[in-house]
Design a protein around this nucleic acid. Sequence first.
DNA 1: TTTCGTGCAAAGCATTTGCAAGTAG
DNA 2: CTACTTGCAAATGCTTTGCACGAAA
Lengths: 141, 141
Amino acid sequence: MKQAKDVLMEKNIQPSFHRLKILKLLTQRNIHPTSEEIYLKLFKEIPTLSRTTVYNTLKLFCEKRIISEVTISGKEMRYEYAEEPHIHFKCRVCGNIYDVDKNCALLDKKILEGHKIEEYHIYLKGVCKHCRGKKRPENKA
Amino acid sequence: MKQAKDVLMEKNIQPSFHRLKILKLLTQRNIHPTSEEIYLKLFKEIPTLSRTTVYNTLKLFCEKRIISEVTISGKEMRYEYAEEPHIHFKCRVCGNIYDVDKNCALLDKKILEGHKIEEYHIYLKGVCKHCRGKKRPENKA
DNA sequence: TTTCGTGCAAAGCATTTGCAAGTAG
DNA sequence: CTACTTGCAAATGCTTTGCACGAAA
């Protein structure tokens, strides 16, 4: 795994303390946090952190294609550090988001019906393997 | 094509004037309007229409699985009347959303890595065939 | 010294909610 | 009469913006 500092330097972004913290948090495997989740988690370590900085940083990282937006929820934006496109699954019972199987022929296509494809966002919804056995599955999200 | 009135009756929804108007608008082919677009369009014919009614109706239709939510934009919710799952493409230059090719093996799967799939949302982003020839493509959305 | 990173507070925008009035069976 | 549909206005929640302070190059 590339060093967080190098990732930023390569994109001509000053590797400030806050930016490094936010990027390191995002490089954890299989997480898709909201800006609020990022803020709350880092706030414990950095009590001076502001939501604005989190938003500014996420916006900057998205523009520089370091992270990508996950719009699976429709309610709030989620973010992930993704080096290659993959598929997301959201469980309507527990609300968890899982990364699943990458072997999708669709992901290889660069042109489809004449349109140039730059980004793939594949969102599946249903009931996850952990919730399928539950007696009374209730929608959480 | 089924009659709008019958679609609602089958789901035990009173086919009120407003509901029929909203449903009929949504059954047009290949459109993915926001609630605001629906409101503005219908407001011309129905000056007493309120945004609340549009929201209430869209929520009801979603719950009854008559329409589905399209979260491709991340900014605002879009809606569509979709009888079968398909793929959406959003052009970052003109902002238009296109329905594309349905032949995706993924769409046949009911179970993936143990998770039960109930909904498919496949969003592609890039530059559409109409904008690819433009001199200075600028992001619109 | 000039630019950049940060943070507060206010504003913005899409959506939801509480409640009251009107309508239909 | 009773339940449902509608609409206004206020509230909510996520995100953006304006602006000022302070640190870094």
